[in-house]
Design a protein around this nucleic acid. Structure first.
Lengths: 198, 198
DNA sequence: GTCTATAAATAGATAGAC
DNA sequence: GTCTATCTATTTATAGAC
């Protein structure tokens, strides 16, 4: 089973490098070297660089949605605020996933696979459906449109804050005096006022 | 004065292309060709690709902050909601600026110039100081920490929404059913609930 | 200040042996 | 399924004529 080993190592390494440097910032040579496999193994397993990237994105989006789901299950019937912070913590800890899913979504949009979001029924970010359900349990009387607004507002804050915190820009003026705890308080407050408006 | 012409054309073209494709996605050849100048003119005027990029970023950040300032002056003593929507409209119309300032801030952070934000006194995004002032005029009794939270929350929504709208991802599942008017309503509502909490 | 020509490195992809 | 070797194109950067 050297197949699965090699293919898996390539995928994992590609994930890391693409999220750090973007699609154009990484060469297939670099990926193969970092993964400890031969260059031509990438062509063999993924046909070309573009298809490797798309496969990586698909994995990343799926993992994101699945993780949000499992975070919700772990927490049980908890508050939306707790869930949002759990998701934030996950993004910080596994920032590669977030960067791949969002940054590439915006920057390398031309090669972003259109079937990457598995939640075809839900209009929103991957994992958004879980937050939606959480809010609906907390406030069963809320209208659906309002809850979708709430999900997007909360998710935007979580993603944006996690992106800034996990980037190298924390030394920049705009991010100065921004600690992880400050950001958590910021998010919690956003959740509070958003839910108050439902 | 072919000097200023050439240098200016390079800067303008670099601005467009970098914001579309990112630092690694554009070659200096491509820039020189699109700008209608000779390749070596870039080395001559900017030394190398990296310094051209940093100069472009600095211009973009300055223009962003200046525009937000002038939008505020145009509006006179208006509501924060109106200002936020004006800024959103500006980002949509001039999305290259936003992409350069934010996307590169996150993705090409390793070459982001540390002196790009001219508002050294204010902790927040370029242009954030203007929103801060606007809120303080609207609610003079508000505490500074609360207003900073409000600025960041509002600005995050505006930037994030504008980024999504100006990307090619509008055909993606996550962005389906998202029109410009929906987004404006979304932002207006966020401003409303945030200011209510001050 | 602008040009041509070119150096030197690196890119993605593949042919063919094993 | 993995390897070496290599093709072709493109990259940044610069030397030197005008």
């Amino acid at each position: 089973m050297t197949d699965k080993d090699t293919k898996g190592k390539i995928l994992q390494t590609a994930h890391e490098l693409f999220s750090q440097k973007g699609y154009d910032g990484v060469s297939v040579r670099e990926i193969s070297k970092a993964a400890g496999v031969n260059i031509s193994a990438i062509s063999y397993h993924f046909e070309n660089k573009e298809k490797l990237f798309q496969e990586t994105i698909r994995n990343s989006m799926n993992e994101m949605a699945n993780t949000v789901r499992s975070l919700r299950e772990e927490l049980g019937k908890s508050s939306t605020s707790e869930l949002a912070l759990k998701i934030y913590d996950y993004f910080i800890k596994n920032s590669e996933n977030l960067k791949l899913s969002f940054k590439m979504f915006v920057i390398d949009a031309h090669i972003f696979p259109h079937d990457a979001n598995q939640e075809d029924d839900f209009i929103g970010p991957p994992g958004g459906k879980v937050i939606f359900d959480c809010i609906m349990e907390e406030q069963p009387e809320a209208k659906e449109d309002d809850v979708i607004w709430a999900v997007r507002t909360i998710f935007t804050q979580v993603v944006h804050k996690a992106l800034l915190m996990s980037s190298q820009c924390v030394n920049h003026n705009s991010c100065k005096n921004m600690t992880g705890e400050d950001t958590r308080k910021h998010i919690a407050r956003v959740v509070k006022v958003v839910l108050n408006d439902l």
